Amino acid sequence: MRRVLPLVLVLSACGGPASGPRITGQPEPNPTVAVTTSPSSPAARPTLGQAPGDLRAVDWRQATLPAAFCHVGDPVRLRSGTARATSELWGTVEVFLDVDVHYGDVDGDGREEAAISLGCDNTGGTASSQLAFAFVVVRSVNGALELVGEISATTMRDDAPHVPLLAEPRFEKGAITVKELWYRPSDATCCPTAASLTRWSLRDGTLKPDPSVQVS
C-alpha cells in the first residue's frame, strides 16, 4: 500500500532511536491538533455504513471513516487505503490508512472495538508533507459501524521538525492509552527520540485525554 511507507520508514529506518539532547521540559500543548471525540448523545453519533459483528472482518482499506484530526468535516471513503479530501485548515489533503489496526474492548460490553491508524498529508508523498496522525476508534452497533472517538496528538514542541506520531494503543475497560512519539529539534524525520503516554478515558460516552502526561 503506497501510504503505509512513510510511517513504516519513520519507525524503522533508524534501526533504533539514538539518544538526543536532554529534554529541559515537557512539550507544549499542540495548537494545530484539535482533540476530537464522539458526541455524548448516542443519537448524535455518526454512522459509517454497515459492519459485521466481528470488526476483524472489515476491509478497512475500503471503509468510510471520519478525519476530524485533519480538519476534514465529513467522513471520507477510503479506496485502496487512501482518500482525497478538503481540510478546513490545510486545503487539499490525502487521508491514508497507516500501518495497522488494533482491537480491544474499551466500553466493557464484551465486544471488541477497533482503533484504526490514520494519517493525512498535503499530497506531497514524503515524510515532511505529513500533517497529522490519529487513531479513529469505532464499534459495531446493530450491524452499523459507529464512531466512538478520535485520538490525536495532544503535545508538540514548537521547534519540532515533524508532527508527533501515535503508536501502541493499549485497551482497558474505560480507557485507551497511546504513546505519542515526538521530535527533538535535532531529530531527523525518520527517527523521533522522545515519547509521552496519554490516557484517553471514556467518560459520558466520549473519549477524553487525561491531563497527566509521562515524558521520556
Score class of each variant (00 low, 15 high):
Arg22Ala: 15
Arg170Met: 06
Cys70Gln: 08
Ala51Ile: 04
Ser87Cys: 00
Leu207Ala: 14
Glu112His: 12
Leu147Gln: 03
Ala83Leu: 00
Pro29Gln: 07
Thr24Arg: 13
Gln50Val: 02
Pro29Asp: 07
Asn122Lys: 10
Ser12Ala: 12
Glu172Ser: 14
Leu197Cys: 01
Arg61Lys: 04
Glu94Gln: 15
Ala63Thr: 12
Thr189His: 05
Leu9Pro: 03
Asn30Thr: 06
Val76Phe: 10
Asp109Thr: 03
Ile116Ala: 00
Thr198Cys: 06
Ser12Trp: 10
Glu180Leu: 03
Tyr103Trp: 09
Asn122Asp: 15
Ile23Gln: 11
Thr193Met: 02
Pro161Val: 14
Leu5Lys: 09
Leu9Ser: 13
Ser152Asp: 01
Ser19Ile: 10
Pro211Met: 12
Val163Ile: 06
Leu5Cys: 05
Val4Arg: 10
Leu89Pro: 02
Leu7Gly: 05
Asp159Thr: 14
Met1Asn: 09
Thr193Ala: 13
Val141Phe: 03
Pro42Ala: 02
Ala195Ile: 12
Val4Ile: 13
Tyr183Lys: 09
Trp182Cys: 00
Lys179Met: 00
Leu207Ile: 15
Arg77Val: 13
Gly91Cys: 12
Arg203Lys: 08
Asp204Met: 04
Gly91Glu: 10
Val136Asp: 08
Arg79His: 05
His102Met: 00
Arg61Asp: 11
Phe135Leu: 15
Gly119Pro: 04
Gly149Asn: 04
Gly143Asn: 01
Pro169His: 05
Ala68Asn: 13
Ser152Thr: 06
Glu88Gly: 13
Phe133Leu: 07
